[in-house]
Every structure is written in C-alpha cells, then in structure tokens.
C-alpha cells in the first residue's frame, strides 16, 4: 500500500531534481529545512527520528541534498521526509513536509477491532512495518 502523507503525496515520487527545487523554494521563504526518517508511518506518529539538526543557515539546496544522500545511505528501507520549519513569530511550525524516500515494500496498515461493552466496536490501525519486527528488535 502506497503511503500518502504530507505534501505532494498523491503525485508520483519526486525526482532528486524536483526535491532540490522544492527545497530551494523553502529556503527562499527563509524556512529551516530538516530531514527525518521513521519505520513507523502511522498517520498519528508525529515524532519521526531526526537526521541531524535542522539546517538553519543553508543558502542552497545542495546542502540539504547532501544530508539526504547520507540519510538514504544509512536508512534505505525507511520512510524519509523533508520538513521546512518557519520560525516567524506566531507561526513557529512546520510549513511543509514531503516524503522523499520509501521502503521497497510498503506493507500498509492493519485494522484492529476491539470489542467493548454493549457490542460496541472500537477501531484502530497499526502499521505492519512495526509489527513485522519482533520485540526488542526495533530500537536495537
């Protein structure tokens, strides 16, 4: 199942050149670009792992692309996204986040039904990517 999260996620995957142009746009807006990765693409998982500190003083996309290449080399089978942080007073938040790397096989999510009193059913989803690894293996 193809993960659709963040900006551009319904488009075909961006090429490196396109990623560079998007990053250039972000830098032009004076946003700080950061690179994050995770193995758990659950939509409510707000806390992806940071690959290095956000890059506050970049002038050109090449610097971010350099870090992206390093992140891809280290975690080829993880989701990697580029985020851009706007430090303007009153915003101070992520303006844009888009996926730039996906694992070869995206297992998707399992729907979990929980029986509750009075024949109520509570639903939740769980990423197979997380369930695939046995206990203790994820954070080793």
């Amino acid at each position: 199942m193809r993960l659709t999260q963040g900006t551009f996620s319904f488009l075909p995957d961006l090429t490196d050149e396109q990623i560079g142009k998007q990053i250039d746009y972000c830098l032009g807006q004076h946003w700080a670009v950061a690179i994050e990765h995770t193995d758990d693409p659950h939509p409510r998982n707000a806390f992806w792992d940071m690959h290095g500190a956000p890059m506050f003083d970049l002038n050109d996309a090449a610097g971010a692309m350099y870090e992206l290449a390093a992140c891809r080399a280290a975690f080829p089978q993880r989701y990697i996204r580029v985020t851009a942080f706007d430090s303007t007073l009153g915003v101070e938040s992520i303006r844009i986040a888009f996926i730039v790397n996906r694992p070869e096989h995206e297992p998707g999510f399992r729907l979990v039904r929980q029986e509750a009193p009075g024949r109520t059913v509570r639903y939740s989803i769980e990423s197979y990517a997380v369930a695939a690894n046995p206990e203790g293996a994820r954070y080793s």
């Binding site: 290095g52 890059m55 003083d57 970049l58 002038n59 050109d60 996309a61 090449a62 610097g63 971010a64 350099y66 870090e67």
Partner: peptide, 13 residues
C-alpha cells in the same frame, strides 16, 4: 559535524 555544517552552508557559493 562542524565541518559538514560549514560545507553545507557554503554550498551554492
């Protein structure tokens, strides 16, 4: 990290 930081800053220039 320090050197890389500077290099990234200088990229494009």
């Amino acid at each position: 990290p320090k050197t890389k930081e500077v290099l990234k800053k200088a990229m494009g220039g």
